[in-house]
């Protein structure tokens, strides 16, 4: 058990001050805007919940939210199984391990705008390798919303599947050999080994992967912005960026933030579920 020590607050104080400056003050400003009308010469007028009602009645908001949810759903359905499949087949020893780890992590470290730019250059029907190859099949992401969706999903899969694969791999290598030996003695099939040994052992990392991928795809802005420059499909963050009226923007921000807050709570519960139990930490995962 950890001892109770209120002086620990002094150690936390710098973080508290810093995050208060970078998060609380801005959030309070947003709250302030969301209940007022900012007129000419920045005169503020109290309008109550007007902006919130306006946002919640706006078709554009619901469409963007819906698009975001569909996008996140597709992303999860593709990236989670694909990531697990890759992790299961990744080498466990030898020179292949560092090669896989380093190359797979590479897309994760590319500035998000550059990710979009790479896919713009790759997918354009006039200069892109991908675009030119598919041009004859009528592919053109700049004109066709379906093709734009396809390109964005493919780009996100390219950008983030490695995260799922690396997390799943970390879960897999932590399984002791004794489990597999026991399974061999019992004559378990490959599927049974996966279903009853590997999957349960990966459950925790996979939950983290699902939550991370859901949140990040739910907040996506930069990569689609780079590829389609605010065109169709319009996601929540794009809608937010394009909203001009300050109060409406603030109200939408708060609704958006509340959705994220709810999901963060789920995330937190999962992350700290088995804190306090003895568990291997600190070494290479």
């Amino acid at each position: 058990m950890k001892p109770v020590n209120q002086r620990a607050w002094f150690l936390v104080a710098p973080v508290l001050l810093l995050v208060a400056f970078t998060a609380i003050i801005p959030l309070m400003t947003v709250v302030n805007y969301s209940v007022q009308y900012v007129g000419m010469n920045t005169q503020f007028h109290w309008v109550g919940d007007l902006w919130f009602r306006e946002v919640l009645a706006s078709e554009k908001f619901w469409n963007a939210l819906w698009r975001n949810l569909v996008f996140s759903g597709i992303i999860l359905m593709i990236q989670i199984p694909l990531g697990v499949l890759i992790a299961l087949n990744m080498p466990r020893k030898g020179w292949g391990v560092p090669v896989c780890l380093v190359v797979m992590a590479l897309p994760l470290l590319i500035p998000w705008y550059v990710v979009g730019m790479i896919w713009q250059m790759f997918g354009r029907v006039d200069i892109g390798l991908f675009g030119v190859m598919l041009r004859d099949f009528g592919y053109n992401y700049e004109n066709d919303p379906i093709d734009a969706w396809f390109t964005l999903v493919l780009m996100d899969t390219w950008h983030w599947t490695s995260l799922v694969a690396l997390l799943a791999y970390a879960g897999l290598v932590s399984i002791p050999d004794a489990y597999y030996q026991a399974a061999r003695i019992d004559g378990a099939s490959r599927w049974q080994v996966f279903r009853h040994i590997q999957l349960p052992k990966m459950a925790r990392v996979l939950t983290i992967a699902v939550l991370l991928r859901f949140m990040d795809s739910f907040m996506i802005f930069t990569e689609p912005f780079a590829v389609i420059a605010g065109g169709d499909p319009v996601f929540l963050s794009t809608e937010l960026k394009q909203t001009v009226e300050l109060g409406q923007k603030a109200a939408m921000s708060l609704i958006y933030f509340l959705i994220i807050l709810l999901m963060s709570w789920v995330f937190y519960t999962v992350m700290t579920r088995d804190d306090g139990e003895p568990r291997q930490r600190g070494g290479a995962s």
Binding site: A23, P26, F221, L246, F257, L261, W265, F267, Y268
Partner: peptide
Amino acid sequence: LFFWLLTNRMAPAAVFTLPF
């Protein structure tokens, strides 16, 4: 406090650009 820190990690950047 630990949870509140996490919410900042998860907050969409688009929400903060306005007041920043």
